[in-house]
Amino acid sequence: MTADLVRLEGVHTHIGQYHILQGVDLVVPEGELTVLLGRNGAGKTTCLRTIMGLWQPSAGRLTWRGREIGGWATPDIARLGIAYVPESMGIFADLTVAENMVLAARAGRPDPRRLDWIFGFFPALRKFWDFPAGVLSGGQKQMLSIARAVIEPRDLILVDEPTKGIAPAIIEAMIGAFRELKRGGTTILLVEQNFRFAASLGDGVAVMDDGRIVHAGRMADLAADAALQTRLLGLSLDQHQ
Score class of each variant (00 low, 15 high):
C47I: 04
V85K: 03
P110F: 13
A133M: 02
F128S: 15
D116T: 15
T74K: 02
R114K: 05
F92A: 01
D94P: 00
P57W: 01
W117G: 00
F119V: 13
V24N: 02
M174Q: 11
G202Y: 01
G185Y: 06
I213V: 13
A93L: 09
T230Q: 10
I118A: 00
F119L: 15
R114I: 01
I188W: 06
G70W: 02
Q229W: 07
M219C: 12
D203Q: 05
V97R: 03
L189D: 10
E87H: 03
Q140H: 01
I213F: 08
V6E: 04
P132D: 01
P110M: 10
E172Q: 06
E161S: 12
V97E: 08
R39G: 12
G120M: 13
A133W: 03
P123C: 01
K164C: 11
D238W: 05
R212Q: 08
E192K: 01
D203A: 10
F122Q: 02
G165L: 09
G41T: 06
M174P: 00
H14V: 07
L156Q: 00
T2W: 11
R7S: 06
T45M: 04
R39P: 15
M1R: 08
G211Q: 00
S58K: 04
H240F: 12
V214E: 07
L156A: 01
G31C: 09
G176S: 07
L222W: 00
G43K: 02
V135S: 14
R179E: 13
A147I: 02
G139Q: 09
R154A: 05
T74Y: 00
D25G: 00
S236G: 15
A42C: 05
L26Q: 02
Q140I: 09
E30Y: 11
V6M: 04
P112N: 08
W72M: 09
A199H: 03
S88L: 03
A224K: 06
A226V: 15
D94V: 11
D225N: 12
A223Y: 00
V35S: 14
R154K: 11
I166T: 14
T74H: 04
G53A: 10
I166A: 13
P86T: 09
M1A: 14
A198Y: 08
A3N: 15
L144G: 05
L103A: 11
G176K: 06
K44C: 00
V135M: 13
A104T: 08
W64F: 15
G165W: 05
P110N: 09
A206E: 10
A177W: 12
L37N: 14
A73M: 08
G176H: 06
E99D: 06
I151R: 10
T45H: 14
Q229S: 14
L233H: 02
M1T: 13
D76K: 07
A177P: 00
I77Y: 07
H12D: 15
L136W: 02
E68I: 03
L156F: 11
P153R: 10
V102C: 06
I91D: 05
G202F: 05
I171G: 11
K44H: 03
F92C: 02
G43R: 01
P123Q: 02
D4M: 13
L181T: 01
M219H: 06
